[in-house]
Amino acid sequence: MYKHILIATDGSELAGKGVAHGLELAKGLGATVTFVIVSEPFPTLAWGGAMAGYVAAEELTNYEQSARKYAREVLEKCKAEADKLGVGAKTLHIENKTPAEAILDAARAEGCDLIVMASHGRRGIGRLVLGSQTAEVVSLTQIPVLVVR
């Protein structure tokens, strides 16, 4: 049924449930997986103030280095879990995009036939104010999406 599953993660405990679920599904189906983690663009509000050019450049460098280190750690853990289960896996770290945009782009580029991701399940005002990357992915893709809560 599914041959190549994209599993999105942000390294959180909830996303870990999505990773575990996606890996078990991949193992059962004999599918391969691509793990993706996304680093959003550096916050533009950080560019304000008289010394903005000097301070922000250093902060941008720190932000990018920290994001890359975190992504590497999360993806190494995901890959190790896949290896333990005998699931073929590759990893992707996408920088400077919104999570939904990056997940959709990666799924298309990698030829994935299922996207697995977790959702915080926010409702009402919390969902409107905070947004939902999962809802955006579901609403914008033609690829099936398995949402884990």
Rank of each mutant, 00 (worst) to 15 (best):
M1I: 03
M1L: 01
Y2V: 04
H4D: 08
L6T: 01
I7C: 07
A8N: 06
T9A: 11
D10Y: 07
D10L: 05
E13Y: 10
E13K: 15
L14D: 05
A15Q: 12
K17P: 03
K17M: 08
G18M: 08
V19G: 05
H21N: 10
L23S: 10
L23W: 07
E24R: 14
E24Y: 10
E24C: 08
L25Y: 04
L25G: 04
K27H: 10
L29W: 01
G30V: 00
A31H: 06
A31S: 12
A31N: 07
T32S: 14
V33G: 07
V33Y: 01
I37Q: 14
I37S: 14
S39C: 13
E40P: 00
P41T: 01
F42P: 01
L45M: 13
A46Y: 15
W47A: 14
G48S: 09
G48N: 11
A50Y: 08
V55T: 04
A56K: 00
A56F: 00
A57H: 13
A57L: 10
A57P: 08
E58I: 06
T61N: 14
N62Q: 12
Y63K: 06
A67D: 07
A67F: 05
Y70G: 04
Y70S: 11
R72C: 04
L75P: 09
E76Q: 15
K77S: 15
K77H: 15
K77A: 15
K79W: 11
A80D: 06
A80K: 13
A82M: 07
D83A: 15
K84W: 11
G86Q: 12
V87H: 06
G88K: 11
A89T: 14
T91M: 09
T91A: 15
T91W: 08
L92K: 15
L92Y: 10
E95S: 13
K97P: 02
T98P: 09
T98R: 12
T98Q: 12
P99H: 05
A100R: 05
A100T: 02
E101H: 11
I103F: 06
L104S: 12
D105E: 09
A106C: 12
A107M: 06
A109V: 01
E110C: 06
G111M: 06
C112R: 02
L114N: 11
V116P: 00
H120T: 13
H120W: 13
G121K: 04
R122M: 06
R122Y: 06
G124W: 03
G124R: 06
I125T: 04
I125M: 10
G126I: 03
G126Y: 09
R127S: 09
V129Q: 14
G131L: 03
S132D: 00
T134K: 00
A135R: 10
A135P: 09
E136N: 08
S139Q: 08
S139K: 10
T141W: 04
T141M: 04
Q142S: 13
I143R: 03
I143N: 02
I143W: 00
L146I: 00
V148D: 02
R149L: 09
